[in-house]
Amino acid sequence: MDHQRVHPNGAPAGDLEMGHHAVVYPPLPAQPAQPVNQERLGGHHPDNWGGNDANTLLVVATLITTLTYQLGTSIPGGYWQQDVPRSPQDNTVMYLAGDPIMRDLHRPRYYVFMGASWVGFASSMMMTLSLLVRMPVASRHVRWSFVVAYSSLVLTFVVSQPKTHLSLDIIMWAAVLAFLWIIISLHPDRRARVIQDLCCSGRDN
């Protein structure tokens, strides 16, 4: 007489009517759940930049693109409504209708403003394209695109304000750029330590 061994959870094997007897194994011990290692699976800590959802970042990139487009087409000061002659007796035109007032009266500030708006527009579009082609959220390309686009919004805002020094505006933009890169690139523990050192160093002295 043959004996056939089967697992208790498996389908019955053999034909019991033909004289085959099934010997049932004892149930297998339950395997403990193994903790999932996020770094080993290519994941990221939820407090890191890589923990963000790609769809959420895509919405943010689209909003930045819209803002930079509106800024580039709405220059502070507006445009000349009509031709402005050099003098009442002179027929030559000093300012043409439709030209940006900021370009004619504050040329360096105008070029910084337009450069920041174009760079922000291009960076936000690059970030949108990168996310659409499924580039990893934590990649350096996506992070840099976000930092440059977001900081460019700050630069266009401060440059558009009257009676501000242009060099201070650029220094403020560089500080915002560095701060954003620290926020999204460092590990949460190291990030908190760096921010604490920057904020409390003067207080300790």
Rank of each mutant, 00 (worst) to 15 (best):
M126D: 02
N37I: 00
W118Q: 15
M18E: 13
T68H: 13
L28Y: 10
G98L: 06
L16W: 09
P8F: 10
A61V: 05
V24Q: 07
L132W: 03
R40C: 04
I101F: 15
T68R: 12
P12W: 01
Q82Y: 01
W49E: 04
M126K: 00
G77E: 04
V36R: 06
Q82W: 01
D90Q: 11
S123Y: 02
P26K: 15
H44S: 11
W49D: 01
A116T: 12
G78Y: 14
A97L: 03
P35E: 01
D15P: 05
M126S: 00
N37E: 02
M94L: 14
D83T: 04
S87T: 15
P26L: 14
Q34C: 05
P29R: 13
V133G: 06
G115N: 14
Y111I: 13
A11R: 00
V84L: 11
A13Q: 10
D90L: 04
H7P: 09
A22Y: 11
A61P: 03
M126N: 00
M102D: 09
M18R: 08
S74H: 12
M114Y: 13
R103W: 15
T62C: 02
V93A: 10
E17P: 07
Q81Y: 00
G120I: 06
P32V: 03
M114L: 14
R103N: 08
V60W: 02
T62R: 04
G10E: 06
N48S: 11
D47E: 04
A30F: 12
P88R: 01
G14Y: 05
G78M: 10
V133I: 14
T92N: 10
V36I: 14
D83P: 02
T68E: 08
L41P: 06
N9A: 13
T66P: 00
L16I: 04
V24C: 11
G98I: 08
H7I: 13
L105A: 07
Q81K: 08
Q38T: 09
M127I: 01
Y110F: 10
T62F: 03
G50C: 06
Q38S: 06
Y111A: 07
M94E: 10
T65L: 07
F121E: 13
G77K: 03
S123V: 01
E17N: 11
T73Q: 15
A61D: 02
Q38A: 05
Y25G: 11
V23F: 05
M94V: 10
Y95M: 09
S124I: 05
T92D: 04
G98R: 09
L67S: 13
V6L: 06
R107M: 04
E17C: 11
T68Y: 12
T128E: 00
Q34Y: 13
P27G: 14
T68A: 11
H21A: 08
A54S: 14
L96C: 08
A22R: 15
A11L: 02
P108M: 00
R40F: 06
Y79G: 11
P27N: 11
L96F: 12
Y25Q: 13
D104A: 09
L67H: 12
P26G: 12
P76E: 05
F121S: 13
L132G: 12
T66V: 03
L71D: 15
V84K: 09
V112F: 11
W49M: 07
Y95H: 07
Q81V: 02
W80C: 05
Q82T: 01
L131T: 00
L63A: 05
R109V: 03
P26N: 15
